[in-house]
Amino acid sequence: MATSSSGARDNSFKIVLLGEGAVGKTSLVLRYVENKFNDKHITTLQASFLNKKLNIHGKRVNLAIWDTAGQERFHALGPIYYRDSNGAILVYDITDEDSFQKVKSWVKELRKMLGSDIALCIAGNKIDLEKDRHVPAEEAESYAKSVGAKHFHTSAKLDKGIEELFLDLSKRMLEKAGEVEQKANGTNRSTSARRNVVIVDDEPEQKSRGCCS
């Protein structure tokens, strides 16, 4: 089944995408993973689970981007989607104050459930509609800073700010992964939520997926 090796430099990160229905989170992520060499005439774009491979100065990063249920009736299901995630992108629409308030409540929930293990990015989307802005840029930026998140101004329509957002988030996840690895050297990773199978053998080269991979 497996067709090739995943080397020691590989990092797999899970990113969840949060935001209300009309903030444009789907366009944003589709723009990011857009396959320029694929048929344009397909009628459905699968936007619930996406992959992207990056190579950041020699470090391979495999992003698994999970869309989460945004409808209010599915709110209770949130944790099923965001548990074990390494990063989150919280999207609001700069013309819609309510969508920004919603981001704030997501941040609270994520910090409560996942602590500081998760790297957060807040995206103020639709900057092509600057003239209808209802969320002041300074307010959003200082809020992001106060909760340890990075803020980005994006437009899925103009393809602005999106690549920078994902690159920054990936770098921060790499940093966190590095910290965890350092801590783990010497101490047992007893807090690991994921089950690892370790095969005991006299040749200690066996490498199983780490908890933070």
Binding site: S27, T43, T44, L45, Q46, S48, F74
Partner: peptide, 23 residues
């Protein structure tokens, strides 16, 4: 469930399938 579908309205934009559609 994610298969391409015939569009009900011919807007020209492909339809995106989100988790809110899948669930």
């Amino acid at each position: 469930l994610m298969q391409p579908v015939q569009r009900a309205n011919q807007t020209g934009n492909p339809l995106a399938l989100t988790t809110d559609d899948l669930l």
